[in-house]
Design a protein around this nucleic acid. Structure first.
Lengths: 347, 347
DNA sequence: TACCTTTACGCAATGCTTTGCGAAGCAAAA
DNA sequence: TTTTGCTTCGCAAAGCATTGCGTAAAGGTA
């Protein structure tokens, strides 16, 4: 900047203002500055700018882990949208540990990020560490895993709708007793999927049977075990809606181990559209979460907050609609006499 | 820092030096400063530090894309190792486009990163945009996809060894005619896997049969097609080593479609240890690339370069050893009379 | 002509930390 | 006592961009 100022015989003040399109600089001067800046390939020093303004061109994102399809895709969406807006993205992993989450937050603050996006760790039960962000005026947007009953900005999937769609689909396939493999209930996503399950049953006039709902940690192993217990019931289920794909896989494997045919004896639907669901045999019906769209929506909301200044802004919640992907694990010969049969199979 | 200085009646110079363990500060003073800093929960401003020193606590990483198992896991390793060393990681995606790669590089430079890690985009055929890094003294380490025949720092997988291990394993299982589904040969990784295949055959005294090597784009569909062609040969293969897991899956599905039993009639091995390989039935033998280790090794090398200052340092290449994971798709009843039988099955 | 308003720009301080050079204090050596 | 050397610390500049306040020139009005 000093070089440009010298060459044009003006001060660095003028250069700075011309580059940031300040009103007090005349159009002629702006043109000259811009041209010279281009000629010398002037690159603003983001650090200096950040130091002065207290705001950088960096966005922070904290996810439980980056490997695994869901978060990788969301981060992909985040990075794409952020880059388009001239921001860089710092990623942190909490590894499902609230202590790491706290450290990550400190780390992002000391990097002077302009805003933060968070998907909560599984072990986060209290949220005071996020207060510091508000104190410092750094906007915060949650995605997918959020603080509930709190005034926060969030982008999430309509998990209830997803659970509802999957369960209703199983109903339309003629299933009479649909079990649910639920996830940890302190996480909103699993609670909502369960709710969707209940809603679909209620709508169909089927009573909810508590014995058909099993709570697991969503691993393949625990889900297989839960399925074993379900099949040992007096009147075992003829379908399972699992709140996750690995869970669905565990259920499917256990069912087949017991000699049942999927989907004829036992229809199965999962959640998340993991890569293996199209590879498994049979392919697994699941709910797609539109991950990249979630990432992009999160960035959009965050940038808006950065724009207006986060204070005195009404917290906003965005809800994205999931999509049911019907595949072989749930697709029975549809009984045409069934009034409910409205599901469309995908090729 | 000013507050601490005032309270202790010293200058900010002393505070700064005490905190960075400078030799010119007495141990007594250091203790006092550290204690007070802790009491006031002093957080250094990384921006200011970066501005002054010209080096931040940020590392940049450019990958072709973040979704997909391989890069996600490498990035996981990178982030973990970087965090442990007190660094934050900025990720960028080139989307397999060299123009984006260039932009990402500019972006990272203006963020004043202390070092950069790159896995080349598929469309990068010239490398001058990396010169700017050297000009500015920013260390650079490539991983997985590297500039070849060039003086660069790099961490990569020994793909030849991986191909060799997989093929040798199939030989020890008594396979007589092993086919190879190869990937695009302009990529070093696929070229090397093919080389490993040839090496193992030569070592076993088996002549390489050109008709048994098929070049595909590594998709499931093309690989199935190639397999169909292989099975139509006069003397069809009794084993397939595919250079990728999706490719192996395609081969397996085609083989079973033709009524062959895997692994008895046709043994199959893949490459990459994709998530679905343990989910498929039978589970698929594959080569694990130790992705996270690659990320960690990359960070280690980069930090070393940052430590010594990148100038006048001899470029280093690290080669990681892959690991063969023997699973059901290749595990026959080992014939004890076979002299080659040295493979160990894993539980 | 005297006075006011706009327009266009500069001065200098600010944000926070780091560092070259210099100096004070004190003990050991001459 | 003087010299030498070491330890410990401060001054002030530097790193780069931003901004409140002030000023000078240009244009307009009574």
């Amino acid at each position: 900047m000093a070089d440009l100022a010298r060459e044009l015989g003006v001060s660095t003040t003028t250069i700075s203002r011309a580059l940031s399109d300040h009103f007090s600089i005349g159009p002629a001067m702006k043109q000259k500055v811009l041209k010279l800046a281009k000629k010398y390939n002037y690159q603003p020093n983001h650090m200096a700018s950040a130091l002065r303004k207290g705001k950088s061109k960096l966005l922070g994102v904290i996810v439980p882990y980056i490997e695994g399809r869901f978060f990788a895709k969301v981060v992909h969406g985040i990075e794409t949208a952020a880059t388009k807006a001239g921001y860089n993205v710092i990623i942190c992993q909490s590894n499902e540990d609230v202590a790491n989450e706290r450290r990550n937050l400190e780390s992002l603050l000391s990097a002077q990020v302009a805003g933060v996006m968070v998907s909560l760790s599984r072990t986060t039960h209290e949220f005071h560490h996020f207060d510091k962000l508000r104190d410092r005026g750094v906007p915060l947007v949650f995605f997918d895993r959020v603080i509930e009953g709190n005034n926060v900005n969030a982008v999430l999937l309509d998990d209830r709708e997803g659970g509802y769609l999957a369960t209703r689909h199983l109903l339309t396939q003629g299933c009479q007793r649909i079990a649910h493999l639920a996830g940890p209930q302190h996480l909103n996503i699993y609670r909502n999927r369960l709710q969707g399950y209940f809603d679909a049953l209620r709508e169909a006039g089927q009573p909810a049977d508590e014995r058909l709902v099993r709570y697991t940690d969503m691993t393949q192993a625990q889900s297989a075990e839960a399925t074993r217990a379900l099949l040992a019931l007096e009147s075992p289920p003829d379908a399972v809606f699992a709140a996750g794909d690995y869970s669905a896989l565990g259920a499917m494997q256990e069912a087949r181990r017991q000699g049942l045919c999927v989907p004829t004896d036992m229809a199965i639907a999962g959640f998340s559209n993991e890569a293996f669901t199209v590879v498994a045999e049979p392919t697994i019906t699941t709910v797609d979460q539109h991950c990249e769209e979630m990432g992009q929506a999160t960035v959009r909301l965050l940038l808006e907050l950065i724009g207006v200044g986060s204070n005195a802004f009404i917290p906003r919640q965005l809800s994205l609609r999931p999509e049911l992907l019907v595949r072989d694990s749930s697709l029975r010969e549809v009984d045409e006499t069934q009034p409910l049969a409205t599901a469309a199979a995908q090729p």
